[in-house]
Design a protein around this nucleic acid. Sequence first.
DNA 1: CTGAAAGCGCTTACAG
DNA 2: CTGAAAGCGCTTACAG
Lengths: 351, 351
Amino acid sequence: MPRKRARIKDIAELAGVSIGTVDRVLHKRGEVAEKTREKVMKIVKDLDYSPNVIARALKSKKKFRVVSLLPEPSEESAFWAKHPEGIIKAMNELDPFPIILSQVTFDLLDEKDFQKKSEKVISLSPDGVILAPIFKTQAIAFCNRLTKKQIPFVFIDGFIEETEFLSYTGEDIFQSGRVAGQLIDMVTPVNMDILIINITRNIRNVHHLNKRTQGFLSYFPESGKNKGELISMSIIDPVPENIRKELKKVMARNPDIGSIFVTGSKSYKIADYLESEGIHSVNLIGYDLLDRNVKHLRSGNIKFLIGQRPDEQTYKGVKKLFDYLSMDRVPDKMEYLPVDVVTSENVQFFL
Amino acid sequence: MPRKRARIKDIAELAGVSIGTVDRVLHKRGEVAEKTREKVMKIVKDLDYSPNVIARALKSKKKFRVVSLLPEPSEESAFWAKHPEGIIKAMNELDPFPIILSQVTFDLLDEKDFQKKSEKVISLSPDGVILAPIFKTQAIAFCNRLTKKQIPFVFIDGFIEETEFLSYTGEDIFQSGRVAGQLIDMVTPVNMDILIINITRNIRNVHHLNKRTQGFLSYFPESGKNKGELISMSIIDPVPENIRKELKKVMARNPDIGSIFVTGSKSYKIADYLESEGIHSVNLIGYDLLDRNVKHLRSGNIKFLIGQRPDEQTYKGVKKLFDYLSMDRVPDKMEYLPVDVVTSENVQFFL
DNA sequence: CTGAAAGCGCTTACAG
DNA sequence: CTGAAAGCGCTTACAG
């Protein structure tokens, strides 16, 4: 039973010191005799003291500054448009608490810009950072600087093992590929072939998309019922003419393609093509609830979309930083969000 | 830009009154001259004042008492085991705020018990109530009493239109049936038949399960590719012998059953049967991530489970009550949670 | 090294 | 009808 909570005052009385001294012990601000410190700490332990965050928040002049470093959303990277929503939501919820948020964005196709903007983040002297480590080399350099400055940081979208991140919140990339594999296996007629398409312009995606592909492929030998062929292709420059040309070619060579798996968020580009050609027999599956994907999902050109909750990633990332900064609450290092299976019939709930 | 927040003190100064008076206006405690009241209200509006919840929480002796009225989980109604987790989670998150929670449970099969326990809820003089309105008549009576006492209440799991509930958080029951229909349509070979099974012992479920069935059926004429027959059956007393007997009968009569849709959370009972008979060719789909369902999902006897986030229902219900009580925040009346599509490959993220 | 005091923005009696 | 004061549990100078 939660007995009445101990206060600093209670500890002070039991220890026969003033509350100022207790506070100094609790905050390790030194200037306390070792004997006093021990006595106080013992009582703190005994009473299982934890500070009243409300009182702390009310008093403290100190505002935590959290800075986000994420790609700038654009026509070609609409995926990143959802992330700020989670940040806003966290802000609103934390509203009365002492926290300030600044958002910094960088060009998804430009590693130099990432570097430049990471400078900017540091110049804001943040108390915590939330970032998507798109460019590995640059991200490592940046993270190391943060670590040196003792600034905690959390990853979303992906993580880099070699850094001392506080927490990762996001997709289990390999597993999300497996889910795609399972779904496509369920809906593809036995003996029909499956086409895997990588659409990518920037190097960053390579790791991400490869990992999904690995997960996807891993599904079949163990668990798949499908006996058809698995065909892979990449499209570097996904303008409509290229897509048309490449797809025409591959589909001419492989007339038995029953399903197409797009490893990234641009399945709508394939759907555009299939629609224009009047091809309805192919099961298309892709990632992320971009408007253009959702449109095709609803009209039946895309069968499944896999969602990775971009807004929840940022929302949770911000909250973890805040909890860590304000109450020393250390989050689980890895939090994989659910891999959402989205169809035309349940998409409404995810928007 | 959020200018520095207005405080009661600021309002008092601008209005040329004391903070006590401002407080009386804000809390409608009367005893204020109408002219004073108007002047203060104008300034409140102008400054877009909203109280600092932290300061309020720190000061207030008043603790909000929230009481939940939910079915007692049991072997036969394991579905209800998840709901308390959401309540606990909300409690932990709200921990330092002034809120007390009491949980009252009733026997899912006994309307008299619901009535008795609803008395108990009232005797706890709650400031807010969260309930699952399982028995319609009794729930209406209870809700009307709450309304008379001006005690706000929120529904989970289902809602009753005729009552003045603050908010509903839960499944879109009809639509979740449609999702099931779509999934089964995708995986059932054309021309194979589909069997719909209602397993129910208590009347309550009738409404719920019927609505799902309606949603399920609604999918086919418009959107389905499947051309087989749709067969319905009910199993009142779902002991293994009965299930075996009934299924043997129906499957003998309809040898082309390709899929089975169980409208409630007891699909594991059908899976038990299929497994014991060594039937692997039938696609089974059901509801809710009960341990026994998940086991069959993982081993392949169940293809899809549809989840309705029971813990999120209670979590959000409690938070809405708290926000309403402590900051007059009125929630959306209807909040449909996502219909989760769960397979053996993504189930890990939902547990 | 330690204590006493002020103050964060509210709410709650109490005095007038 | 209105104001002044105390206090919620902390943190932050400041004095000694």
